[in-house]
Nucleic acid binder design. Structure first.
Length: 920
RNA sequence: GGGUGUUUAGCUCAGUUGGUAGAGCGUCGCCCUUACAAGGCGAAUGUCGGGGGUUCGAGCCCCUCAACACCCACCA
């Protein structure tokens, strides 16, 4: 027997260990392969709501397919997350008054590896807590030996084919991290700034041209002023020279179509080394690129002495002040502009000319685009493919070098003359390029963008470039489960590299789930202080601990107070423990096709109740079956209820299969929830009670026991992918009673729908029975008749089928509607004053006796009559429309006619009853 | 500027080829009823964002407007 109360904490503890230790997570080696690659979380990270949500969905798919007999692999692993991880450890050093530059590259890397080894287990421990059935024996890390080998292989090959090149380009430079970042790692935000109108005088000594700029400090890098070629104000000036203020340089006026004459003055200063637009224009006009900044965004020695070494924003103030003194500022306008910031550091990005490595993506993008266009790779929901197309059709070369230490070091070597050699390692370089052993070579200092190794994840984890058995079996993988925020960062690049290096799609389907937000629709973030740790939902947490967690280690400590206040308001008692299964089930029900998902504690609370419901239903079943089960052959007869619940269950299984096939976890979960609670518990269990308690020798108790246990056992299997722990715990007790042996539910087959089990007559009978019971309960409820009070019921005016059914099912009627007695009235019997309900033609009377208030019943009837009248009006109106009668399909018209007749008949009866009771 | 979404009950959301508007939570009654008070039974609640169109019929299809959200892009 199960414990009296459902306690997730104790039952979740045992099972994961057991599953893992018995190798249940490893591929079976039998059946069609089914493989999902985990989007590798940052190795030093910790689980957040998004992870837990995503991993739950993957685990549902994995457990479902494993039970369906697939050879299932959920490949697990973590990412080295270059910038993010390096930043964490750098911050630690700073706290110790150290810096990576002081301790040096080697010591710094040692330090990160040490940190990785200490905290790298966090995320995997947490994965276990949510029940993720990943194959731990195959765990990988993007910086491990095998994956590094794959990275080098890819780099060398792409370089050889000319698809990776090195060049001095304008890139997004993060002056705080002192590294280049890709376009995707830059986030632009609107900010209030100014537009400065500056005079650029003619060298002749009088007059000037006024240019408008948001970045006056870059004036030192100006190499031209551009105007629109058709602009009548400036046409005559094209080709003339201007005096660049604060300098002794002269720069030309040039003409370019891209200039908007309506903006500012129609004159634009051109700074090719510090602006992407100007860079392109510079290229068009063969202008020099004049870099005026150092790597930390201070001005370099290309600017006048007075400004050298100043930070760009200090320099700005200085330039404005000096221009003002020279009366060269015409005016200043407030202006809203986009400020580019690094997504990690938050530093304002500076376009800077540096030597970097790039992937030439155009040729890689073409097949990747086609793979989605022709449906070889499907996005679910489908509209995400549009987002993918938009980006891929306008794709720019990818800057892959990072001036960091933590990552895959670029396999390129330089000699003193600056020649570049690319190969697997230095020895190979010397062989490949036939270099003398004595020629000094130094390796490129830079590492690769983290996403470069992530792009190889689907095949590098399986052993590529070796043609391993794993790779042969599980590649291409079946589905990628991820958020839309990394479609460009990751999904697109996996498709490009997958097609390039394996000639196959890395996955068949990309399922894009929504992003979790807090209950107010805000993104969960540390600075907002609204983060919820999924583990705290499982175990619970008290308010002080929650506040401590949310305010600890804030980048902006001044936010702590506000966070404490909102947290206290929102969770005055902390967060109660809900258990893993309730959390997982909640994630499933939240996985609609919506883009953003608001996480509300109410939902998880409801689902903990669902767990409890299931638990108690199982207790009821066990209580009535343990020690009382024969095998199926001893069952003499099946009741209508048995046949009904079996039949209804088939539909549910079918629905679940359909919904999971379409990645509608919400609908699948909903279908199971509804059946479990609203059919199995609310009706079937209640219907078995009179049978199980009956003293009658010929009763169908054996059939009820058998049905109770077999349906429950199947429900557990069907629910297992959603709620692995509770289903396993219950199943252990239930399975033996239903004649099933097995060590664990997770390796049992997933229940399948069977058409032969459909029983339409039983379904119709039980639907009828339900409506009679509901009608009586409605009267009872409306009249406030307490459940303990049994009532007499009179039936009147029904057809022969009603009579048969009432005869057959009177025991159920009495039990579920709490009847004291049950009689048929003949047409000429006198009817006592009574409350009335209708089910089809059948009239149900509950005599007023002392328990029903006459006026209340009059009100109730009148309400009912009003409702019917409205419906009748609608039906009449439709049928009086000749267009409808002539054009609508016959069955729709017939249905409307039937409705009209039914409403009319019902109204006649109810009105009669109303008169009777008024006159009584 | 380009693109993609969202708008349905008090709240959070379903609504699958157009055919009688649903769930959970909350609210309001009556109940400790031998699985479950983490529960049972009953009830109330919607001009499906606005306007137009197609159709016998629109929450669903088309057009348009509005609000909100997100993504991409070089307006100095």
């Amino acid at each position: 027997m199960l414990e009296k109360t459902y306690d997730p904490a104790t039952l979740e503890k045992e099972w994961y260990q057991y599953w893992e230790n018995s190798g249940c997570f490893a591929p079976s080696g039998k059946g069609k392969p089914y493989c999902i690659m985990i989007p590798p979380p940052n190795v030093t990270g910790h689980l957040h709501m998004g992870h837990a949500f995503q991993q739950t969905l993957m685990d549902i798919l994995i457990r479902y397919h494993r039970m369906k007999g697939y050879n299932t692999l959920w490949q697990v692993g973590t990412d080295h997350a270059g910038i993010a991880t390096q930043m964490v450890v750098e911050r630690q050093l700073i706290a110790e008054n150290q810096s990576r530059h002081v301790i040096g590259r080697e010591a710094f890397l040692d330090r990160i590896w040490q940190w990785k080894n200490e905290s790298g287990g966090n995320i995997t421990r947490q994965l276990r807590r949510i029940g993720a059935s990943v194959d731990w024996s195959k765990e990988r890390f993007t910086l491990d030996e095998g994956l590094s080998k794959a990275v080098i292989e890819v780099f060398v090959q792409l370089h050889q084919e000319g698809l990776i090149y090195r060049g001095k380009r304008l890139v997004n430079w993060d002056p705080v991290l002192k590294t280049a970042v890709s376009d995707l790692e830059v986030e632009s935000e609107d900010e209030n700034g100014s537009l400065w109108y500056i005079h650029y005088p003619f060298p002749e000594g009088s007059g000037s041209v006024v240019v408008a700029t948001t970045r006056p400090e870059t004036l030192f890098g100006d190499v031209a002023v551009a105007v629109h070629p058709e602009d009548p104000r400036y046409r005559a000036l094209i080709g003339k020279m201007l005096q660049l203020p604060l300098t002794d340089r002269l720069i030309p006026v040039i003409a370019d179509d891209s200039i908007d004459p309506a903006f500012g003055t129609g004159c634009v200063k051109i700074t090719p080394a510090h602006d992407f637009n100007d860079y392109a224009m510079g290229a068009r006009h063969s202008l020099p690129q004049l870099n005026i900044m150092n790597l930390d965004a201070t001005l370099n020695d290309a600017v006048p002495k007075a400004y050298q070494g100043l930070d760009r924003f200090v320099a700005r103030e200085r330039v404005i002040k000096d221009l003002n003194a020279l009366k060269l500022i015409e005016k200043i306008e407030p202006h809203i502009l986009k400020i580019p910031k690094g997504d990690r550091s938050g530093a304002i990005i500076e376009p800077l000319l540096t030597d970097q490595w790039f992937v030439k993506v155009e040729t890689l993008a073409k097949p990747a685009l086609e793979a989605v266009e022709n449906g070889n790779i499907k996005f679910v929901p489908d509209n995400w493919s549009k987002t993918y197309f938009e980006w891929m059709r306008n794709i720019q070369d990818w800057c892959i070098s990072r001036q960091l230490w933590w990552g895959h070091r670029i396999p390129a070597w330089y000699d003193d003359a600056g020649n570049i050699y690319v190969a697997k390692d230095e020895a190979e370089v010397r062989i490949k390029y036939k270099l003398a052993a004595t020629l000094p070579l130094r390796q490129d200092e830079d590492v690769l963008d983290t996403w470069f190794s992530s792009a190889l994840w689907p095949f590098s984890t399986l052993g590529w470039p070796e043609n391993t058995e794993l790779l042969q079996t599980f590649y291409p993988t079946q589905v990628l489960v991820t958020g839309f925020d990394i479609i460009f960062f990751w999904v697109a690049r996996m498709i490009m590299f997958g097609l390039k290096f394996t000639n196959e799609m890395p996955f068949e389907t990309v399922y894009i789930h929504g992003l979790i937000q807090d209950q107010n629709g805000q993104k969960m973030s540390k600075t907002k202080g609204n983060v919820i740790d999924p583990i705290d939902l499982i175990d619970g947490i008290d308010l002080p601990a929650l506040i401590q967690k949310r305010t600890y280690g804030l980048m902006q400590p001044q936010l702590a107070k506000a966070i404490e206040a909102t947290t206290s308001e929102e969770f005055p008692n902390g967060i109660p423990a809900y258990g893993t299964d309730a959390l997982r089930f909640t994630y499933a029900t939240l996985a609609t096709s919506a883009r953003f998902i608001r996480f509300d504690l109410k939902r998880i609370e409801g689902n903990r109740h669902f767990c409890n419901k299931l638990w108690n239903a199982a207790r009821f079943v066990l209580m009535n079956t343990e020690g009382k089960m024969g095998d199926e052959s001893t069952v003499k007869s099946w009741s209508t209820a048995d046949n009904w619940i079996v039949s209804a269950w088939q539909r549910v299984k079918l629905a679940v299969e359909k919904h999971l096939g379409e990645y509608r976890f919400d609908l699948a979960a909903q279908a199971l929830y509804d059946f479990t609670w609203n059919e199995y518990c609310d009706w079937y269990l209640e219907l078995t009670k009179p049978v199980l308690n009956s003293m009658n020798e010929n009763s169908t108790a054996a059939g009820a026991r058998f049905t109770l246990i077999t349906i429950l056992e199947e429900m557990l299997r069907a629910l297992h992918p959603f709620m692995p722990y509770i289903t396993e715990a219950i199943w252990q007790k239930v399975a033996p009673l239903s004649g099933i042996s097995g060590k664990t539910i997770m390796l049992q087959p997933y229940p399948e729908s069977s058409v032969e089990c459909h029983d339409l007559k039983a379904e119709a009978d039980i639907e009828w029975l339900k409506s009679i019971i509901l009608a009586i309960r409605n009267i009872r409820g409306e009249m406030n008749v307490p459940p303990s009070k049994r009532v007499p019921v009179l039936f009147f005016n029904g057809n022969s089928e009603d009579q048969t059914r009432i005869k057959n099912y009177s025991e159920w009627l009495s039990a579920l509607a709490k009847l004291e007695s049950l009689h048929w009235l003949k047409p000429d019997d006198t009817r006592p004053p009574a409350a009335t309900a209708l089910v089809g033609d059948l009239e149900i009377l509950i005599p007023l006796g002392g328990l029903i208030d006459k006026d209340a019943e009059i009100n109730r009837l009148q309400k009912e009559i009003d409702k019917l009248n409205k419906e009748l009006e609608k039906a009449k109106q439709k049928l009086s429309n000749t267009n409808f009668v002539e054009n609508a399909p016959k069955d729709v018209v017939d249905q409307e006619i039937a409705r009209q007749l039914e409403f009319t008949a019902s109204l006649a009866k109810l009105n009669g009853r109303l008169e009777e009771i008024k006159n009584s």
